[in-house]
Amino acid sequence: MSEGNAWVFGDEINTDLMAPGLYMKSSNEEMAKHCLESVNPDFAKNVTPGDVVVGGHNFGVGSAREQAALNFGTLKVGAILAESFARIFYRNALNFGIPCLFFPDYATIKPGHRLRVDAALGRIDNLTTGTQHTVDPLPAHLLEMIRAGGLMPHLKKRFASAK
């Protein structure tokens, strides 16, 4: 469950916009400062932990670079909602502990709307407009990974308990 303000982006937001090639050799923290800067220069500056990123069609299209998804994790984004996701971005984001939900009503969300996202129930509450949306929840095994904080902490837990 996360609650935060909505940051709304359009269709086909690609991995180069999320992790510009120019900063690929920078530290994770430095690179995250440039996440989506050419689309919305305020985003990386003003996003606060728990905020929700909303995208349109084919969110994360482009290369397999993990840094595109990792930046949202570094910025502590609470969830990503999009009409659809590009395959490798979607998986990378989940692996970095960020819930991603397919959200057909993405266009009803306006910048700054206060959203509460429950990935387990598949429930999105728009606290600004008072509307409620139901989407496909994340299944149990992915939720478990998300709750652990992503793939690496999840594997650590799994291997610690196996030993």
Partner: peptide, 18 residues
């Protein structure tokens, strides 16, 4: 199918993938 390095870590470790 193709996967990122982070997922291949899980694959070579566990032999499983979702």
């Amino acid at each position: 199918a193709g996967f990122g390095g982070i997922e291949m870590t899980a694959v070579v470790l566990t032999g499983e993938i979702w």
